[in-house]
């Protein structure tokens, strides 16, 4: 066991980030001034515009197939004793970098995350993360990176598993949460939606809207938060319904009504944060009000991303929920 001093020293010894260059500082200030000058203030900063090697999410237009295999019951899923709430997300991640010779390379890669949450949160959950190795080059090729390097921007194929107790979402990890407290007493947060946190959320959409927007969230930042709750094992129909209504209360959200999905079903599509450059969309099952997926469309040219063309879907996350008979077993 470390002493407090050793822990403090290890914290201090973590690598520092890059310096705040005058150019970066000027860009940040310019973004602020540009926003202040807008008559209608809307975000034009693209969260997915990543610095070198930072992985964000992208997929080329038309490549996403939303299967929407959620057992789309029009009522809450019932997870009986011994059964598991099953959640799956098929995510395509955008990465960019350079070859050793300085050539820009951009790609999208797939990660599939599955989770099994027990009927009793105090029992063990399982989260399985599969870096499938599937990828498509937007700029560059396998041949290029084999010859000139840079292939390290892609995650090596492989499967990781996390097991723990008191799991709340696909982001749960061992050691998380208030470990000295029983699962049902942990306060939680929007990003760690414990049973208590969800139980205490207001069911009035206006009040829920106020809590949701306590800190500015736009575009896919907002949608990511909403989907976490919508597909939570602990979110009943009442809170899901209130949350969808709360989201529509934001002036930046547009309800596009029913839209067809890849497998011929229909979902209710919401656009969030359309700023003339990109547009985030969330697809909600109209019966269960669970999230079926979300994505971001690139709507304009971005000179810094020549490999990503206007019209591309720059985020793609397909999502499913269901009830599994055993841990690690995919429901039929």
């Amino acid at each position: 066991m470390w002493t407090d001093e050793e822990l403090d020293q290890a914290l201090a010894d973590q690598p520092v980030g890059p310096a705040f260059s005058p150019e970066a500082r000027a860009r940040a200030l310019a973004a602020l001034r540009e926003e202040a000058a807008r008559p209608v203030r809307r975000s034009h900063r693209k969260w997915w515009v990543a610095a070198a090697a930072a992985a964000v999410v992208a997929i080329t237009a038309g490549a996403a197939v939303f299967l929407h295999g959620a057992p789309a019951a029009d009522d809450d899923l019932h997870v009986g004793q011994g059964q598991y709430f099953y959640s799956k997300q098929d995510l395509w991640t955008y990465v960019r970098g350079k070859t050793d010779t300085g050539k820009p390379i951009e790609a999208v890669q797939e990660t599939i995350t599955e989770a099994w949450f027990p009927a009793n949160p105090a029992d063990q959950y399982l989260i399985r993360i599969d870096h499938t190795g599937n990828h498509r080059w937007l700029a560059g090729s396998d041949v290029l990176v084999q010859a000139e390097g840079g292939g390290g921007i892609l995650a090596p194929a492989g499967v990781q598993e996390r097991r723990g107790t008191c799991g709340t979402s696909l982001e749960s990890a061992p050691g998380h949460g208030d470990q000295n407290m029983p699962c049902d007493q942990r306060p939680g947060s929007w990003d760690d939606p414990t049973p208590l946190f969800i139980a205490q959320l207001p069911r009035d959409p206006a009040e829920l809207h106020q809590q949701l927007y306590k800190y500015p969230r736009v575009g896919v930042d907002l949608i990511g938060t909403v989907t976490t709750i919508l597909n939570s094992p602990y979110a009943g129909r009442d809170v899901r319904s209130a949350l969808v209504k709360a989201m529509t209360m934001d002036p930046g959200t547009v309800d596009n009504g029913d839209s067809p999905t890849g497998d011929g079903r229909h979902g209710r599509t919401f656009t969030q944060g359309d700023d003339g450059f990109d547009r985030a969309e969330l697809l909600v099952d109209p019966q269960s009000e669970r999230s079926l997926g979300y994505w971001v469309d690139l709507t304009a040219d971005d000179p810094s991303h020549p490999g990503v063309q206007p019209g591309a879907e720059v985020v793609s996350a397909s999502e499913w929920v269901g009830v599994a008979p055993k841990i690690g077993v995919v429901p039929r």
């Binding site: 926003e35 203030r41 809307r42 975000s43």
Partner: peptide, 24 residues
Amino acid sequence: RYLGRLVGAMADDLVGDTFVAALK
């Protein structure tokens, strides 16, 4: 400095995003 340790070079963008979000 804080963001740089968390997200590396992405801090350049997130500082601007922070102030834009705060303004909004």
